[in-house]
Design a protein around this nucleic acid. Structure first.
Lengths: 252, 252
DNA sequence: CGCTTTTTTGAGAACATTCAAGGCATGTGG
DNA sequence: CCACATGCCTTGAATGTTCTCAAAAAAGCG
């Protein structure tokens, strides 16, 4: 049984954001302006489209596993994905959450260095690795874009090292909420400015190097302090943005 | 007064590892086989050489500072460099140590995201940023090499997140020692297999998210357990490599 | 509605930190 | 060559933040 199911064919004949002639999956892609394909012209896009598959993965399913052969990379086109590493006794560190436009699964080596799992229902664009790297040789714009993405990721990772190595539990939670509301997070911010976390307390804990209980206690404290409001569905409104920034320990 | 001093001119006429016609600094460069220039042919190397300066920085001096304009990138050609980020109250996280062949100071944005400081006396190769990116457009091999370097760094950063978020103090020290002895570390490994750390206990602590005291206590425990031997000068011999691996919590 | 899963809350324990002092090496000046 | 100052490392005792263990409350789901 494959963990990955091809996405159902979309409505044909509907013009997408780009020119016609593209496969439905690409023409309607919500992430095309964010992903590595965004710098390609229409002709190149058609070429790229011929190499890829569009997939759906339901929440909780694995996309690829650490140590597996890295045969394909994926662009997240909707939903939220997490990547994590495990220690032998089960301790888990989530190394990143990924949103629409993010590319995952294109490591330097032959195998994936982390496991990827769908947090919500997810749609993905699958690039066979060999064909993608061949394409990079032809289209330098693609490689430039990839380089930019990897650099961004590295910078984010360095900020996360500061968080994991030196910040208190409270500061970690504050930083996390601010990052979600300020940056990243397409699909996390409601129209009314409310934040939908999507991931569980346990996931947040494993991302911030804490336990579920500590995360829960910090949320409670922030709520009682009037910095955030949490509604019945767990959606979060940041009331004291400045207060939260003060609590985050800030960059410097 | 500049923090960076040009390196003294080398002996002229001495043939380096590469063909002649190169500036002494490049011809004699100990890191040319490791750095991003390693994939260039002689003609390209001559071109690259015309863009760069060779510098010396003494131990403890700053190379560039967080938030400064990222006008130049640097390749470490000898010695050890650390990069760190600070919180407003002085808490510090070292995000990486850099050895011969490593490239630092080429961020995505306009400013350096971290401060770089010489741990030992260091020699550097300085690339003005604009000219380097112009050169990348001409020599795709250079950009490919950079991409590979950044990917390596990202993978290292992800392993460090696992360490900082989930490993115990003992496991962090064990992992650190193994990494130095296995990988990285040109100039850290003596002929007889002994490890020279170069950096202080405080630096190690700020790299591993611990305090100086905890680092010291862990070293003592490892020494008393017979896993490592520390001589009068602080050089370390790893006696129980397998034992250390068991203590490191290992990848999975 | 009953079941499972997740989240919250509480009490006690643990690991690492903080605070404090002593040891050891290096370097300087008498 | 020794005395002394300095900086870094080590060791000890006490504290604290976060974790572990445990149970209740809330939310999701058939």
């Amino acid at each position: 049984m494959s963990r990955l199911e091809p996405v159902a064919a979309g409505h044909s004949g509907r013009a997408g954001a780009r020119s016609t002639c593209l496969p439905d999956g690409c023409a309607n892609c919500m992430a095309s302006h964010l992903a590595i394909c965004s710098d390609l012209d229409d002709e190149q896009m058609i070429h790229l489209s011929s190499l890829i598959d569009h997939m759906k993965v339901t929440a909780g399913r694995m996309i690829f596993q650490e140590c597996d052969d890295a045969v394909a990379a994926f662009t997240v086109t909707s939903g939220v994905v997490k990547q994590y590493k495990l220690l032998s006794d089960g301790r888990r560190q989530i190394i990143g959450f990924h949103f629409a436009g993010d590319l995952i699964g294109l490591p330097r080596g032959a195998t994936y260095p982390a496991t990827a799992e769908a947090v919500t229902d997810v749609t993905l664009c699958r690039f066979p690795r060999k064909r993608l790297s061949a394409l990079m040789d032809d289209y330098p714009a693609l490689e430039k874009r990839l380089l930019a993405k990897v650099r961004d990721e590295l910078q984010t990772a360095q900020e996360q090292m500061l968080l994991l190595g030196r910040k208190t539990a409270q500061e970690r939670i504050a930083t996390f909420l601010l990052h979600l509301s300020d940056r990243a997070a397409p699909g996390c911010l409601d129209a009314d400015g409310r934040l939908t976390l999507h991931m569980s307390r346990g996931d947040i804990a494993d991302y911030l190097g804490l336990t579920t209980e500590t995360v829960s206690r910090c949320f409670t404290r922030l709520r009682k302090a009037g910095v955030i409001q949490v509604d019945a569905h767990g959606h979060i409104a940041i009331v004291g943005h400045e207060h939260l920034e003060a609590l985050s320990g800030s960059g410097d």
